[in-house]
Write a protein that binds this DNA or RNA. Structure first.
Lengths: 98, 98
DNA sequence: TGAGGTCATAGCAAAAATGTTATATAATAA
DNA sequence: TTATTATATAACATTTTTGCTATGACCTCA
């Protein structure tokens, strides 16, 4: 049992995690979505890397927001964390103020 | 006025487009999400390319599902189509059948 | 103190995405 | 028919992501 694993037990009880590449600026929202997905799976970077058939350092780079991953990579993450990848283009803010 | 533009007028009236990289297999869902986003903006591949600072052929390649775009590219598409990019890892199917 | 475990970073080579030019096809309008 | 417009494809150079091998920092626990 390790830190992330403990977080897991705690989070899985009441966490509605639906992190998204949404609000923030520089793509760091995606990074936190990755971290949450991994935490929800209760695994380490090492284990996630194993499931994605890559290395721990690659996972750290992704979570650190130091790359702009392709959908290929995002799909691997989804599979490895037991989640479903969803990418959408949603209608934007209001056009004119009332 | 061109074909897509006409589609636009038609769609914008009643289309709740929220295409997603969701159900299907080979990443073609993303492709159709792209097409819908562009159609909702009522522009041609050529115009989308101009807004993304790339070329029409690159857009065609994306919409044809012949690449796995990075979040960098997805962001460009969102900005160019006036939409908001949303990427999320959602909880998966049921674990055990009752 | 030291060992073990987790995560972050740097640097490099290989792979994939991207930008670009040049066509080709299809549909429409004149 | 011809001209024009929109989209699809191929081929290639450039850029970015990705995989990999260290290595260092930070904990916790014995």
């Amino acid at each position: 049992m390790t830190r992330v694993n403990e977080l897991h037990t705690q989070w899985m009880q009441d966490l509605e995690y639906q992190a998204a590449y949404d609000k923030p600026e520089g793509g760091f929202a995606l990074a936190s979505a990755l971290i949450e997905a991994r935490a929800s799976a209760g695994i380490t970077q090492e284990e996630l890397a194993r499931r994605m058939e890559t290395t721990q350092s690659a996972v750290a780079r992704l979570e650190g927001g130091r790359s702009q991953p392709s959908t290929r990579t995002l799909e691997k993450i989804a599979k490895a964390t037991g989640t479903r990848l969803k990418i959408s283009f949603e209608p934007n803010k209001l056009l004119k103020a009332p």
